[in-house]
Design a binder for these strands. Structure first.
Lengths: 203, 203
DNA sequence: GTCTATAGGTAGATAGAC
DNA sequence: GTCTATCTACCTATAGAC
């Protein structure tokens, strides 16, 4: 079972684009990484932009459905928060360059990104989680917090440590092994942190 | 009191570099934005990389001392956390493109970034805050939490909402005014969130 | 489908007049 | 200090043989 030329290209392109960004990526380098030549690259993907969009959308399509599955599941609030953080960080541990890549590119082309993301089949959908938060707060089972801020807080704590890795390691003086130890311990740490933050003080 | 040509260039370069990134930025566009021509650009800054580094380091030098001043001040834990978040977000509100720019560039050139940041006069210095956290936890005045994780949590909640703005607005369907309302309300919201998360349950 | 060779355009950098 | 003109290199994309 061979790996098709198209998949070899997509794999190589993912590597180069995520590490260098669209503008600095070179078609030659992608061809080299895929073990083919530039001509063949244009045979499969008419131009650089089309190849980039394939990589970019593949990344989102692998990501969004997985977290949505947790967000839309029939789980208690605590289970859902723990499940979301676990799933989200699991995907990022396997794709550690994804956050900086997506953040960088979408800020360099915000209007194209917005058009493009809104036309996708699936968007991140935190609505059910936010409704649950509101209900639990109304029922007095958790502290009353802004669902939108809480959602932003959860995503921030999951995503930023990947994107800020070079600064974090430099400032803290930690090596790669220590970084990954820290990241692995984060799933539980962030979950506990959030559950404590929304605990009702009257319990 | 005129603005010097060099400052006009730096200002224009900051705009173009922070929005397009190093690789996609064009010397021609910077020259146009500064109201001069390409030749003069090379007269003041020998090449593109030197111009970029001036912008990049100016950004960090404007940023790091301001937050360090709070981090190293003689304040109670609660005041320090509130002060840090307030100062950090205040700077970012005035430079909203900075986070995605810095995150993107440092991930595209991690080794150069690491060399460069370590040779700067001043690094972000959360040590005193982290010692305070440890002491308060040992004294039982706050819940025992990992200082390193807490530090990462605070920074994450401050920084990511700027870098993730296009995704956030698209997914939530909110306009620019609503986005800025949200961001302005975040200083207090994040501070409260953290203070609740580290509250000691036995109080 | 896969390759080589090259066209065509663009951008960083320099030379030199004023 | 500031400008115009130009050189040189590189990179995307295409043409065309196999």
């Amino acid at each position: 079972m061979e790996i098709s030329t198209e998949d070899k290209i997509l794999l190589a392109a993912k590597e180069v684009f995520t590490q260098k960004g669209y503008a600095a990526a070179r078609m030659q380098e992608i061809a080299d990484a895929a073990g083919i030549n530039k001509g063949l690259l244009h045979y499969y993907f008419k131009n650089k932009e089309k190849l980039f969009l394939s990589v970019f959308h593949d990344a989102l399509d692998n990501f969004i459905p997985r977290v949505n599955q947790v967000l839309e599941a029939d789980l208690s609030l605590e289970e859902k928060i723990a499940g979301f953080i676990g799933e989200y960080m699991e995907v990022l541990i396997k794709n550690p360059h994804l956050p900086a890549f997506v953040l960088g590119e979408m800020n360099q082309h915000p209007q194209e990104f917005t058009r493009s993301i809104l036309s996708r089949k699936e968007l991140p959908n935190p609505m059910k989680l936010m409704m649950q938060l509101q209900m639990e707060a109304d029922a007095g089972r958790i502290r009353s917090v802004s669902p939108l801020h809480l959602w932003m807080n959860i995503v921030s704590m999951c995503v930023l440590p990947f994107a800020a890795r070079p600064m974090f390691q430099a400032v803290m003086g930690i090596n790669d092994a220590q970084y990954w130890d820290f990241m692995r311990s984060r799933k539980k740490e962030v979950t506990d942190f959030i559950l404590h933050a929304i605990r009702n003080e009257n319990n």
